[in-house]
Simulated assay, not measured.
Amino acid sequence: MPDALERLDGIAAEHLAVLHRTLQEEPTAFGLYEAACAAGERLTAAVHVWTVARDGDEFAAHFTATVGGEGGTVADAAVRRAAARSARRLLEEEHSAGAPGGSGMSGEVFCLLYRGFFADVVAEFLRTAVAEKVKLVVPLLPALDPEDHIADWIAEHVLHLLPNPCEEATRRTESVEKAEQVVSAVEDPSIGSLRLVAHGLVPRAAGRALGLLSDRPSGSTDGTPYEGEPAA
Rank of each mutant, 00 (worst) to 15 (best):
M1F: 15
P2D: 15
A4H: 14
L8M: 13
G10K: 12
I11N: 03
A13H: 11
E14Y: 05
H15C: 08
L16G: 08
H20L: 02
L23K: 13
Q24H: 06
Q24N: 07
E26W: 15
E26H: 15
T28C: 04
A29Y: 02
G31K: 04
L32A: 05
E34F: 01
E34I: 04
A35L: 01
A35G: 11
C37D: 07
A39M: 02
G40N: 05
V47H: 11
H48S: 14
H48N: 06
H48E: 15
V52N: 07
A53N: 03
A53G: 05
G56I: 00
G56N: 03
A61E: 10
A61Q: 10
A61D: 12
H62Y: 00
T64M: 10
T66D: 14
V67F: 10
G68Y: 01
G69Q: 01
G69K: 06
E70P: 12
T73N: 10
T73M: 07
V74H: 04
A75I: 03
A75P: 06
D76G: 09
D76Y: 00
D76F: 00
A78D: 11
A78Q: 07
A82S: 06
A83W: 03
A84Q: 02
A84H: 10
A84C: 09
R85M: 10
S86H: 06
S86D: 06
R88T: 09
L91G: 03
E94S: 10
E94I: 10
E94P: 00
A97E: 14
G102C: 07
G104A: 04
G104H: 07
S106Q: 05
L113M: 14
A123T: 03
A123D: 00
F125Q: 01
R127V: 10
R127H: 10
V130C: 08
V130E: 12
A131V: 09
E132W: 11
L136D: 04
P139G: 04
P139A: 14
A143R: 11
A143Q: 13
E147H: 12
E147F: 12
D148Q: 09
A151Q: 11
A151I: 03
W153C: 08
W153V: 13
A155D: 00
V158A: 02
H160D: 15
L161C: 08
L161D: 12
N164G: 01
N164M: 07
C166D: 13
E168W: 02
T173G: 11
K178S: 12
V182F: 13
D188G: 12
P189Q: 13
I191H: 05
G192T: 13
R195F: 00
V197N: 03
V197C: 03
V197K: 00
G200Q: 01
G200E: 09
L201E: 11
V202H: 00
R204A: 11
A205L: 09
L213W: 04
S214I: 02
S218T: 14
G219N: 07
G219L: 02
G219Y: 05
S220E: 12
T221G: 04
G223S: 06
Y226V: 08
E227S: 00
G228R: 06
E229Y: 03
